[in-house]
Design a binder for these strands. Sequence first.
DNA 1: ATTGACTCTGTACTTATGTACGGAGTTTAG
DNA 2: CTAAACTCCGTACATAAGTACAGAGTCAAT
Lengths: 125, 125
Amino acid sequence: MKTIGKLAQSLNLNVETIRFYEREGLITQPTKPISGYRQYDETIAGQLRFITKAKMLGFTLKEIKSLMSMDNDCAKVELLSRQKLAIIREKISDLQRLEKVIVDMTNTCIQNDDPTYCPIIDALK
Amino acid sequence: MKTIGKLAQSLNLNVETIRFYEREGLITQPTKPISGYRQYDETIAGQLRFITKAKMLGFTLKEIKSLMSMDNDCAKVELLSRQKLAIIREKISDLQRLEKVIVDMTNTCIQNDDPTYCPIIDALK
DNA sequence: ATTGACTCTGTACTTATGTACGGAGTTTAG
DNA sequence: CTAAACTCCGTACATAAGTACAGAGTCAAT
């Protein structure tokens, strides 16, 4: 059993972040003995690692809470993952379109000798 | 000359948004006659269109303010665009990596017959 | 037993980009 | 002339995901 500071250190999280996750109902309540200091066991450490990994995959805290409550209902989990996948793919193609527009714009700059005129600014007008 | 409501309507913007941009110093101050009602000319409409387009390219309001103050210094504008481009490209490859991880995870779900176990949840633990 | 480090709760602040609202003044249509 | 519609300003609220702080209590080491 660890106090919040030790737990935070071992997981490389901020103490406030752990308390925030508790307030948000993402982790189960740790036992609190007489003193009032939270005591964390390995279960909660595991939940926090789960949250961290899911966050890296682009899930929001809200979705992660949902994922955790689905427990092991694979069909539901798969659906949520596929939805996330669709969003990620959409973001990728949005960004690729942007990329092309900006590349085109900056290329027109290169051939420009007039210091008082910018084709990018012009394109945006 | 238009009042704020007409301008907002013609640009498909919210009245509050225009005032917000004014507070943030993104557009020049409109003239205000005796009554106190702002009167907008075509110059400001143009600035607002510029902001809208630049926003679509992924520039933040802060960057847009910066872009506008560079006026036509093409070298500076090009630099900012290239920086934005680098960020967009980084985001794309981040997302592509995520995409792969999620695809792999969801694929393992398909071959799973056990309703009490989910490989995705397992992968996140 | 004291000091420093740690933790508690509750609240406020952060960033970015707006939106909404209250109460007052103005303009316009009928 | 009156009522509806519009505008003003200043402030608060919204989202997401935390971070910071104040004031009080507790624990561990010397």
